[in-house]
């Protein structure tokens, strides 16, 4: 059978068109892949969530600094109870942050967080954190929010981490978007 040139052209065009469509898909696939990549590598200071305590407690000590921020229009005062803590690697420690709603309406906030230096972020393990869930504060209400964490003892086995003596845990509170939308819709 003779192959018409039109058929050949259509085939190449189809492949090229599918490539373009695939690349649009790839752009969207980047969203979950990017999240996964951050979790696995600690890229951008992403911390890990631990299920149980660390197996061993080492003699090596780390200074953990705490940093608290809010987005401009949140209307909360948010600060760490303690500026810094010295913990042994593998030791489970508890730190507190306080948040006060200084606005005159109930506000639901959600916190993003990271650890600097970024390269050590994946060794910072949280057992329990207020940042895992949304927090709602009534006007004038003040709460203490705990973070239960440890520094993974594996950090001691990585030569690249030998220079890490200080970890900074930073939080930024934003107003939860779902909440803002529903409060708009509410009468």
């Amino acid at each position: 059978m003779i192959r018409l040139p039109q058929a050949r052209n259509a085939r190449v065009a189809l492949f090229a068109g599918l490539t373009a469509v695939t690349m649009v898909g790839a752009a969207y696939a980047a969203v979950p892949l990017y999240n996964l990549f951050c979790k696995v590598t600690g890229y951008g200071g992403t911390t890990t969530v631990a299920m149980g305590e660390a197996g061993a407690i080492l003699d090596r000590e780390m200074t953990v600094l705490f940093d608290a921020n809010t987005s401009r229009d949140l209307g909360w005062e948010f600060r760490p109870v303690q500026r810094s803590m010295t913990v042994r690697v593998g030791e489970t420690a508890l730190a507190y942050f306080t948040a006060t709603n200084t606005s005159n309406r109930p506000v639901t906030g959600v916190a993003t967080y990271n650890v600097a230096p970024f390269k050590a972020a994946s060794y910072f393990s949280k057992l329990e954190c207020f940042c895992f869930t949304e927090q709602t504060l009534d006007p004038g209400e003040s709460v203490e929010m705990p973070v239960l964490f440890f520094v993974d003892p594996l950090i001691d086995e990585e030569r690249r981490m030998d220079d890490v003596t200080t970890l900074t845990l930073s939080y930024t509170f934003f107003e939860s978007e779902g909440d803002a939308a529903s409060s708009d819709a509410a009468p």
Partner: peptide, 14 residues
């Protein structure tokens, strides 16, 4: 063009 332009289109749509 074929490989990069659709990624821009995706980002712009986002």
């Amino acid at each position: 063009l074929l490989l990069s332009m659709p990624v821009l289109a995706g980002a712009l749509t986002m």
